[in-house]
């Protein structure tokens, strides 16, 4: 037993030393792997948010179209010719109001879709850069990746909020005036 203990210790020590050396050798590679995984995850989330925005916008556009048709029919049936008359009609008034709001939301979702598309492109670029660096690390012994890691970290932090869910900030929406809606509903007049 007295002989086994030092042998055991020696073996364990050797094993730990070997493992540590291996881990250190692949530390940067792992770091890049993690970075790429983070980018990939964030990109998929951003992509999903973009799809959500597109889906929501399409639904809003369908609602807008239906309400617009209803308002036009009401205008035609009631022989409404002026905006004042239209505003006097409860149905047309509320239809116009809802159309203005939906239009504002549609515009905002369009902005978000554009934003997410650009974000996905940027993340794709960073992913590519990380993968390029990873290949170099696999081929060569070392490469400075700190700058890339920092850059990616900042970008990820910046996109993180938007990746979780769609943020449209309704309080900043610009609702088009009802005059524009009326003009759109009744262009002939």
């Amino acid at each position: 037993m007295n002989k086994a203990i030092p042998l055991l210790s020696l073996a364990i020590g050797g094993l730990i030393l070997f493992s540590a050396m291996t881990v250190m050798a692949n530390d940067k590679g792992d770091q890049l792997y993690r970075t790429m995984a983070d980018i990939s995850l964030l990109s998929s989330q951003m992509s999903q948010r973009k799809e959500d925005a597109i889906e929501t916008r399409d639904q809003l556009i369908a609602q807008l179209k239906a309400i617009s048709e209803e308002a036009k029919q009401e205008i035609q049936d009631k022989k409404i010719e002026t905006q004042a008359q239209a505003l006097e009609n409860s149905r047309i008034f509320y239809d116009m109001r809802l159309m203005a709001e939906i239009q504002a939301y549609v515009d905002r979702y369009t902005q978000r879709i554009r934003y997410y598309r650009v974000a996905c492109d940027r993340l794709g670029y960073l992913y590519q850069q990380a993968d390029d660096d990873l290949k170099i690390i696999h081929t060569l012994s070392d490469l400075k990746i700190e700058a890339l890691i920092n850059q990616v970290g900042k970008v990820l932090d910046g996109y993180l909020t938007d990746a979780q869910t769609l943020v449209i900030k309704p309080e900043t929406l610009s609702i088009v005036p009802l005059e524009q809606i009326w003009t759109r509903l009744n262009p002939a007049r």
Binding site: M36, A37, D38, I39, S40, L41, S43, S44, Q45, S47, Q48, K50, R117, C120, D121, R122, L123, G124, Y125, Y127, Q128, D131, D132, Q164, T165
Partner: peptide
């Protein structure tokens, strides 16, 4: 290989086809 991925080019406007990496999507509310 990233070189073969659509997302490799930052200028592309198509959806980046990032590989589905293991980490699950964070829980949304």
């Amino acid at each position: 290989p990233v070189a073969q991925q659509p997302m490799a080019t930052a200028s592309t406007s198509t959806e980046p086809a990032l590989p589905a990496v293991a980490p699950p999507e964070p829980e949304r509310p």
